[in-house]
Nucleic acid binder design. Structure first.
Lengths: 144, 144
DNA sequence: ACTTTTAGTTGACAAAATCAACTATTTATG
DNA sequence: CATAAATAGTTGATTTTGTCAACTAAAAGT
């Protein structure tokens, strides 16, 4: 691995940080903050699960997460019940309202990506997705 | 662009957000915060420049930036002099110490990337970099 | 000349994130 | 079994990060 390689990688990281920033900032116009949106995403995809599951999957501080979950419960997005296997934990499930909220910001996020890519041709989009897929595949072997 | 396309893109975004998070968290073990490191990077590469230049290149609030610059000056990393062309602006230049600090965190960041990729073969690394390059090229046409 | 922009600073504040202390369970260990 | 250690989650205090608006001063536009 040469210095130039590293330079390229860091250059891409900076570039992609900006892209992600664009997408993220758009989400911020919704009723939910970025961390909230992330938690909502994880809840939707892992439910029923515990707070620990969420915590490790997005590497969020447990105190912080606890508050986010409390706010979700207060807004009626989330239902908790005592876990039967573990008396310390609660089982988390989104309510109908919670799922609906997730779908809503998920939809908004999708259409923002559509808009971002609207200047690309179908061929370019296909190419880009292929690069993403292969990049992910390669890098998955490296992380962890 | 199909729903599946969008799904892939968002999946990659989540994946890469994690990668970047890994890299960023590592930098945070230095004496500089993430925003500080970014400003230092921009200073190093754009100097001599004005605060405005930095501001637009990393999209940072001018108030926030002003404070970061002030702290850099206080630590002796940054020298300001009145711009001759524009009486409102100052020309920013890193001091020797500032450059040294930049080199130091830059070096640390590079070796962290090396470590992250240490499990990949040279061929895989080359492939990954190629995908990055092409992805960037395609997406550059889309943003803005 | 005057209005409007732009560069930068500052204060007040809000949001995001971290840390440590604490309770209550569960698991491990002698 | 007893009790020590680890884990799940909550809460309070605090720090870091980021935003917003008001302000000064210089520059540019009309």
């Amino acid at each position: 691995m040469t210095e130039k390689d590293i330079q390229h990688i860091r250059d891409f990281n900076r570039f992609y940080t900006n892209i992600i920033g664009l997408v993220d900032n758009h989400i911020l116009n919704s009723a939910y903050s970025l961390p909230e949106a992330r938690v909502l995403y994880e809840l939707f995809h892992h439910q029923p699960c515990t707070a620990s599951t969420i915590m490790t999957s997005i590497n969020m501080d447990k105190g912080y997460l606890s508050r986010v979950l409390k706010s979700f419960e207060k807004k009626g997005l989330l239902a908790r019940k005592q876990s039967k296997e573990d008396g310390r934990a609660s089982t988390l499930v989104l309510t109908a309202k919670g799922s609906k909220e997730f779908e809503s910001i998920n939809q908004a996020s999708a259409s923002q990506i559509k808009e971002l890519l609207s200047r690309l041709s179908p061929g370019q989009i296909k190419e880009a997705i292929e690069h993403m897929g292969q990049l992910k595949e390669i890098l998955s072997k490296a992380s962890l």
